[in-house]
Each structure stands twice: as structure tokens, then as C-alpha cells.
Design a protein around this nucleic acid. Structure first.
Length: 591
DNA sequence: GCCGTTTTCGGCCCGACTGTTTTCAGTCG
């Protein structure tokens, strides 16, 4: 784990400890913010400590800075250690249990001596929680269920698995009587790589009283396994497979506000609501309101009041009323997008249709399922101008990598297809392994025979940062290398991949004219959004490819595009939006 | 704990739902 991530974990733990101890909530919020910040920093925090620029990072104050400096210099922080040792270690992981929060954990500890999830499980089974204030039969049951869900590996599921489930449910919701329109919100709308739950917002006409019926009908869908909650405006269920799905029902005039609110992210919304306050307004799931009117009415009724909203019908209205451009959901992570929107400088994000060809694909020659012709025909059907055939190199024995002899024959076969087939340029290339020390799997005398070269790490993905960084640098330096494929080799939920110091690699790649791939194949999505964002900032070109091993794999392109969009990429940042002539200019300028 | 062209002190986002409550605390997103 990188130092940034280690520190992020440290601050996360510290925040949890403070919550359990019941310290001022804003302290733990501040530490949570520092944790998130560190996890997303595109550079090594060590550098900021050394050159003093840590002072300029908003969110890191005096206390956090001391903790970070201590850890950088000595490997540990006395402040954090004493905080951690002030409560039993096992209490912190209990925070992961759904429906169990800091207050209850603290009570369980003080009144029943429970200090970890195991003891809690035993206490429930033995009926030792009875008689505790606020813990009735149902609450205990929901804690029990929460533990089961957590230990079953519960939590987030992959984007690729959530998409079809959500699509089906959306269709069913739209078909319900009284529903005027419905859309998916939440992290799925933001295309996060993993999804905690699916959020669906449904609009009913302003005069409709069908909220309850719709809510009820939703909980009766055939794929619903369990109903977690059901109200007039909101229902939560678990569908088969354990995924939580929330439905919110709002009058149509509040649809935009509800979509904005439930799309999140939470951090984006918190910042936005702070901004609304600065402007004398308040923003909630019902709309944007003038604070004076809203407060006055709320004091009278004690409830969210029915005063006219400044904006609520569409998201565009809300952002506009706050003085900014509408922000694409993929950017709503509080990573600077609100400042951009206020300055009217929101990037015109790349879309799937901008892509003119795929530069990473496999055939039967190595470990693909289809022939060169089949892949080319599929690419034509997608409207592509070009397709790069990039089978594996000789070290990928498991993937039937090509020996030099087989490669030369394969190149001939590709060129034969290229000459014959109309309507697409088929490029003869290869996905060449970047070996452990950064040398490539073929010598230059072979590489120069290829139209271009994509070089990727496949094995030895547990190197230390220095070795991993040098490995990629050496590949970037090769005069024939044009693209670094899936630069870290990570697989979502399976392995972390190489701990590359990307600041260094990106600087070199920008200078050398080497593109970095966003591999759209699940579960790679590599580079990820944060690294791709840093690449763009460093002036590096990206290449979004599917790494297709069969013609159906081309369909995964939207996943890669979503990563590019989350990184703030425009078409001009991605080489395979170029027409064929411009692309070849890019690919040959190093030679 | 962090922040500041209204503030170095006094703020800091907001509502729904649940359960166990006779008016609210805890949790969640």
C-alpha cells in the first residue's frame, strides 16, 4: 500500500474512534475529509512534506499536518496511537455493520463489555442484549442481519453487475401506474466502478396521491428478496443476490432536486449546500429555497415547509440558480468540479461516439475467441475507422503468446486481411509484455516491424514502488512503444496492481509522446479515474481500449469511457478519437 | 479539526425512516 493510502486508513480509523468516543462530530468529519483527500491525492504526500507545500492543501490543518509529518519521518504518529489505544481495537470494525452506529457501539461496550464483532454475535445468540435502552427485538434482528451481510462479503458490487439489474428495475418502475418518469441516480449514475446500492427516482404528477401504492408495488417486484423499509416517499429492498435498491417517489416539480440530491456524491452535495448557504439559500432533496422564507415556515410547522422553491424541477435550474453550469454526474465527487462550473469551464466530456477505433484487441492467434476477419467485421459494424490487432507476446505462455516466428506469420496474416477488407484500416500490432526489469518481450528489430506497439505489465505485479516505476519508465523510453497498456495491472476486488509513482511516469510519457491506456475491460478499468485525471493534468494522451478477446467484448467500451469521463477527459485527450491519418502521425512520431 | 473579502471565533448540510418512543434518538445516504 502506498504511504498516501496508509495515511488515509489511519485517518479513517481515527475518525471512527472519535465517533465512538462521542467527541465533537466535526472533528471526526474533518479527519474523514483528510482521509479521503489523501486517498485521492495524485502525488506522494512525502513530497509535499519535504517542500512545505502541504500547507497549501485545503482540508489539512495543523493537527493533521503534524500527524502526517510524524508518520513520514518516523513511520508512526503518537497522537493517532494514543487515540487508537483509548478504546478497544475491535470496536472500529463494528462501524462496518449496517444499522449499527457509533452510539450503539459505545453503549454495547460500556454496558455489556462487547469489544468486537465476534463478541457481539455471541451476545445476540445468548440473548444478552435484552433490556438495553433503545434496543428492541427488531433492532437486534437488524443488527444480526447486518453482521450476516457484512461477513458474507457484503457491500459493494461491480458496476458491470449492477448495470443490468438496475436497467431491468427501472423498466419495471416506469411501467407502474402513476409514474410519469423514472431515472437511475446514485453512484451508478456517476458510473463509479463499484456500487453500494441502486437508487431510482420516480416522478408522479403533482396531484397524484399514488406514492404509497407505487412504493408498495415496488416492494412486490418478483426479484425482491426482502423489504428493508417502506414509506410514502421512499422504499428500500434487497433484490436477489443481496443488492440494496432504494426507490424515491417525488412530485414531478421536485424531480430535478431529487435527482441532484440522490445522485450525490455526498461530498459534492455537502459542498454545494455550503455554497447555497453562502448565497442565503438552502438546498435539500425537495429543492433550492430562500433561507429566510424556508426557516420562518419551518419554525411554524416544525416540518419541511411548503414554500415555493427557487429551483426544483430540473438539475439545470438548480445549478444555474447557484450561479454555475450543469455538472455531468461523473464529475460530482467534489474534486474541483464546482469551481470549474462556477467559472463556466466544465470540460466537454468525451462520449462513446467520439471513439474511432480500438487499439487493443486479441484473436485466436493468442487467447482470443475470434479470427482477425471476425474482429474486423465487428469493428466495421461499430462504425470504427481502424482496429489494432494486438495479440500477446512470447512470455505470456498461459495466453498462448506468440513466438517470434509465429508473430511474423501473424503480422503477415493481419496485413493480408487489411489489404482485402474494405471500410476499415486494420493495424498490425502486438501487446508486448513489459518484463520485470522494464525490458520488452521482443527486441527492437522485431518491434520495428509493427505498425505501433502497446506494452503492458502482466506478471510480477507486487514489486516495490521504485522497481515498478523504473519498470514503466524503461518501457516508456523504448523508441517503439506508443501505448502503455493497463499500466498497473490491477483487477477490481482481486489485486491492487503495481504501486507505480505516476507523477514521474506521466512526466516522462508526456515528453516522449507515449499514451496511457484506460483499459475498458472488466475488471481492469486501468488506469482508474484518479490516475487518468493526473495523467491529463500532466499532459499525457490517453487511449481507451476494450482489450477485446471476442467480438462481444467491444461492448465494454462504455465502461472505459466512464472512467475517462470521471477523469474529466475530453475527446482531444484521447488518441483513438483521432482520424486514421492523425492517429498514424501520433504513432510514428517517435520513430 | 478546519476555515475565513463580512469571521482568528463560531460556525460547520439536510431530511426520511425505523424502532421504541409518548416526542425522539440513531442511522443512513
Amino acid at each position: 500500500m502506498s504511504l498516501n493510502n496508509e495515511l488515509a486508513e489511519l485517518f479513517k480509523t481515527a475518525a471512527a474512534v472519535m465517533e465512538i468516543k462521542g467527541e465533537a462530530v466535526f472533528k471526526s468529519i474533518a479527519f474523514s475529509k483528510v482521509a479521503r483527500l489523501l486517498g485521492e491525492l495524485p502525488f506522494d504526500i512525502r513530497k509535499s512534506v519535504e517542500d512545505g507545500s502541504i500547507d497549501t492543501i485545503t482540508g489539512i490543518g495543523k493537527s493533521s499536518r503534524k500527524i502526517i509529518e510524524d508518520v513520514v519521518r518516523t513511520g508512526t504518529s503518537a497522537d493517532i496511537e494514543s487515540l487508537k489505544s483509548s478504546i478497544p481495537e475491535g470496536l472500529v470494525p463494528m462501524m462496518q455493520i449496517p444499522s449499527l452506529g457509533p452510539k450503539t457501539i459505545s453503549m454495547l461496550w460500556k454496558q455489556r463489555g462487547i469489544t468486537n464483532i465476534g463478541e457481539l454475535t455471541v451476545a445476540i445468540v445468548e440473548g444478552k442484549l435484552e433490556g438495553l435502552k433503545g434496543l428492541g427485538e427488531k433492532k437486534i434482528q437488524s443488527i444480526k442481519d447486518g453482521i450476516t451481510m457484512l461477513t458474507a462479503g457484503g457491500g459493494r458490487i461491480g458496476l458491470i453487475n449492477a448495470l443490468p439489474i438496475a436497467e431491468k428495475l427501472l423498466e419495471q418502475v416506469r411501467a407502474l401506474k402513476g409514474v410519469e418518469r423514472a431515472e437511475v441516480a446514485g453512484s451508478l449514475r456517476r458510473w463509479r466502478e463499484t456500487i453500494g446500492d441502486v437508487d431510482i427516482v420516480a416522478a408522479v404528477s403533482a396531484t397524484s396521491t399514488r406514492g404509497h401504492d407505487i412504493s408498495r408495488a415496488f416492494t412486490k417486484f418478483p426479484q425482491v428478496g426482502r423489504v428493508l423499509g417502506q414509506g410514502e416517499t421512499k422504499s428500500s429492498v434487497l433484490v436477489d443476490g443481496g443488492l440494496q435498491v432504494d426507490l424515491r417517489i417525488v412530485p414531478e416539480e421536485h424531480f430535478g432536486a431529487a435527482m441532484q440530491y440522490f445522485t450525490g456524491s455526498k461530498e459534492h452535495n455537502v459542498t454545494l449546500r455550503g455554497l447555497a448557504q453562502d448565497k442565503g439559500m438552502t438546498l435539500n432533496e425537495w429543492g433550492l429555497y430562500k433561507l429566510t422564507e424556508y426557516d420562518k415556515a419551518k419554525k411554524l410547522t416544525g416540518k419541511p415547509p411548503a414554500v415555493p422553491a427557487v429551483a426544483s424541477r430540473s438539475e439545470e435550474d438548480i445549478y444555474e440558480a447557484l450561479g454555475m453550469d450543469w455538472i455531468p454526474p461523473e464529475l460530482r465527487e467534489d474534486r474541483g468540479e464546482i469551481a470549474l462550473a462556477t467559472a463556466h469551464k466544465v470540460p466537454k466530456l468525451i462520449v462513446v461516439k467520439d471513439i474511432r477505433g480500438d487499439l487493443h484487441s486479441h484473436t485466436k492467434a493468442s487467447d482470443g475467441d475470434s479470427t482477425i476477419e471476425q474482429m474486423a467485421e465487428a469493428a466495421i459494424a461499430l462504425g470504427y475507422e481502424y482496429l489494432g490487432i494486438t495479440d500477446h507476446s512470447k512470455s505470456q505462455v498461459i495466453a498462448n503468446g506468440l513466438s517470434v516466428e509465429r508473430l511474423l506469420k501473424h503480422l503477415e496474416a493481419i496485413r493480408k486481411v487489411a489489404a482485402k477488407i474494405k471500410g476499415i484500416k486494420v493495424l498490425a500490432s502486438c501487446e508486448v509484455d513489459i518484463l520485470t526489469d522494464g525490458t520488452l518481450d521482443y527486441g527492437d528489430e522485431i518491434l520495428k516491424e509493427l505498425d505501433y506497439v502497446i506494452a503492458s505489465p502482466h506478471a510480477s505485479l507486487k514489486q516495490d514502488p521504485k522497481k515498478a516505476t523504473d519498470r514503466l519508465l524503461r518501457a516508456v523510453d523504448n523508441r517503439y512503444v506508443n501505448i502503455i497498456g493497463h499500466p498497473t495491472g490491477r483487477k477490481i476486488d482481486k489485486r491492487g496492481g503495481l504501486p507505480v509513482e505516476f507523477e514521474t511516469v506521466f512526466a516522462r510519457a508526456a515528453k516522449a509522446g507515449v499514451a496511457m491506456e484506460i483499459n475498458a475491460g472488466w475488471p481492469r478499468l486501468d488506469l482508474n479515474d484518479v490516475n487518468a485525471r493526473a495523467a491529463i493534468a500532466a499532459g499525457v494522451m490517453l487511449s481507451v481500449n476494450t482489450d477485446a478477446h471476442s467480438i462481444s467484448d467491444f461492448e465494454q467500451l462504455p465502461l472505459g469511457i466512464s472512467v475517462a469521463r470521471r477523469a474529466g477527459a475530453e475527446a482531444k485527450n484521447v488518441i483513438n478519437t483521432l482520424d486514421h491519418t492523425s492517429l498514424m502521425k501520433f504513432l510514428t512520431r517517435k520513430r
